[in-house]
């Protein structure tokens, strides 16, 4: 039997073996080839609304077309972002240079060094409903070794608002328990913004907090902004909320007011931990 006869006789089998070989090749390169995964991701982005891309082709052809039309705009945006990144890098260098200059000048004049703070991202992973206003568990994303007990936890609300949420209660590895500002165990020194009025902010397991130990002669009014008072680990001037009501004189013999939080404590998810460098 010649080769030609063999091929013509067993053509289906030969083609079947070739297709098997091809499919096994595809299956084996599936997890190893990142380029193949990239192509697949590309397909998923453009065609897959749900898991079957044909849905999009049949049901949402305009969406697919729009996505393709977006490509040049995305490219332009990418170029602009690259330029912004370059500018930011220059600004970063300038900032570093200025900080170095300040350090040198403060050393020269014998001043104490300004504490350098840094933010570390964290995300709430568990928040028990029974302890909703008392504590939450966060997953620290980044250099968790810098985080210590009592490190302040801050919520960032776009575009430029920072609110004090609580403090790190305990930490194990990347997981930390946060003592929320609304916890009855939480007592932090606070002051009224732009005024020389100080007190202790006490939680009540609800969105309403109380400031106690305010001197009777101190000026405090409804609507005043409450900020942190920089003692111990606490940063100075981080906003907490606003004075909601003047409650009069408490059992301690000091003035007492109620404070409403400046943010929605139920919706906090991504937080920042403030650490000293």
């Amino acid at each position: 039997m010649t080769l030609k006869e063999f091929v013509s006789k067993y053509r289906p089998t030969i083609f079947f073996i070739l297709s098997l070989f091809f499919s096994i090749l595809c299956l084996s390169t599936q997890s190893t080839t990142k380029y193949l995964l990239t192509i697949r991701s590309f397909f998923v982005y453009f065609f897959s609304f749900t898991y079957i891309p044909v849905y999009r082709i049949v049901n949402y052809p305009l969406v697919v077309v729009n996505r393709f039309v977006k490509i040049p705009f995305l490219y332009e945006e990418n170029l602009k972002l690259k330029k912004v990144v370059k500018d930011m890098y220059i600004l970063k260098l300038q900032n570093e240079h200025l900080i170095r200059q300040i350090d040198e000048l403060s050393t020269y004049k014998g001043l104490s060094a300004i504490p350098q703070y840094r933010f570390i991202n964290c995300e709430i992973v568990t928040r028990e409903y029974k302890e909703w206003f008392n504590e939450c568990i966060v997953n620290i994303d980044g250099d968790s070794e810098l985080v210590t007990d009592d490190s302040p936890v801050i919520a960032y609300l776009a575009p430029d608002k920072f609110f004090f949420v609580g403090r790190i209660w305990s930490k194990r590895g990347n997981i930390a328990k946060v003592l929320l500002v609304t916890n009855t165990l939480s007592m932090i020194p606070v002051r009224i913004k732009n005024k020389n009025t100080h007190g202790i902010l006490i939680g009540s397991s609800s969105p309403i907090l109380y400031i106690d130990y305010i001197l009777l002669e101190d000026d405090i009014r409804i609507g005043d902004t409450v900020v942190t008072f920089g003692i111990n680990n606490l940063p100075e001037g981080v906003e907490i909320g606003r004075v909601e009501n003047i409650l009069g004189i408490s059992d301690t013999g000091f003035k007492k007011v109620s404070v409403k939080l400046g943010y929605n404590i139920n919706s906090i998810k991504n937080l920042l931990i403030l650490v000293r460098q």
């Binding site: 091809f22 599936q30 891309p53």
Partner: peptide, 28 residues
């Protein structure tokens, strides 16, 4: 066999399953 192979390729592309599975199945 050929149609099994071709339909397998099309099926794998449009269904975004693990590429190569349906080529093997349909060809077989």
């Amino acid at each position: 066999v050929v149609s099994g192979f071709v339909l397998g390729v099309i099926y794998d592309v449009i269904h975004l399953t693990v590429f190569g599975v349906n080529i093997l199945l349909f060809s077989s």
